[in-house]
Amino acid sequence: MRIEARNLDKHFRKIHAVDDLSFTVEPGRVTGFLGPNGSGKSTTMRLMLGLDNGGGETLFDGQKLNSHLPVTRTIGAHLDAKFFHPKRSAYAHLRMLGAEAGISKARVHEVLKLVGLESVAKKRPGGFSLGMGQRLGLAGAILADPQVLMLDEPANGLDPQSIQWLRDFLKYYASNGRSVLVSSHLLSEMELLADDLVVIARGKLIAAESMPAFLSRATGSAVVVRSSQSEKLSEILNAQGIASTSDGANTLVIPRQTTDRIGEIAFTNGIALSELSPRTASLEQVFLELTDSGQEYRIGQTS
């Protein structure tokens, strides 16, 4: 199911929390939703679900959410790890959430088992850890096997094994043609998980594109070449207007170029290469570069 967020807009008095935001979430892909603290990610998700009143609209396969019935077969959302009554058992919580789609008791047990909460199904979740709360929230989201999953920081509080499980699960979920929109502050995790990215800062769209395209925006991306004829290659590149810098013996770093282009030049000029590799920036580098000026709540500098 394709999700189209169109011109989403939200004011909190004088604060423009979400500013004319438009993007799409494609089926069969995991879309990461990134932004600094206070950038409007959660508000955007609430706008998409119709929980907050604001400008714009969100269409699910061209239609509004409430025209897809039952809604829980269309979308499963997990917005907070503490959205449950502390004295309603995990099982009863899911039974309640399963009302709209007519979810069976067997399915509730199945989902509890899937997220690893079967042994505490009848316990009150008031005593659950943050990670267990995340699992319960995720269980609620996937209960009706929806076409779209929308998860806000689902990896917070999870241990490394659970994070890996979540990553594998979401990739598997998307691989069946379903859409997954997931926000996270864990950039290294997002780099492993997301196919596409939507990046916002101060409520405005910074980027909405595939992960490789986003990473290629980095000023630090370059091609690394090692050759016994590195000096000659540097001269040839220079003659063609391509800057390069030496990075140790026989090694050149050539910014903003592709390995295809450099390899072709070296081959044409008969230069043997012992290494030709891309040096791409990490998601964290690119993210920090692009969102630095859009950070709402900036931390102080250490002296």
């Binding site: 929980l51 959410l65 829980t72 907070d80 503490k82 959205f83 449950f84």
Partner: peptide
């Protein structure tokens, strides 16, 4: 009261947008 105190109103209104 419970819905607002524990945030479950957001689950309720996601499931029943009307």
């Amino acid at each position: 009261g419970h819905e607002y105190r524990y945030g479950t109103i957001r689950l309720t209104l996601t499931e029943f947008p009307k």
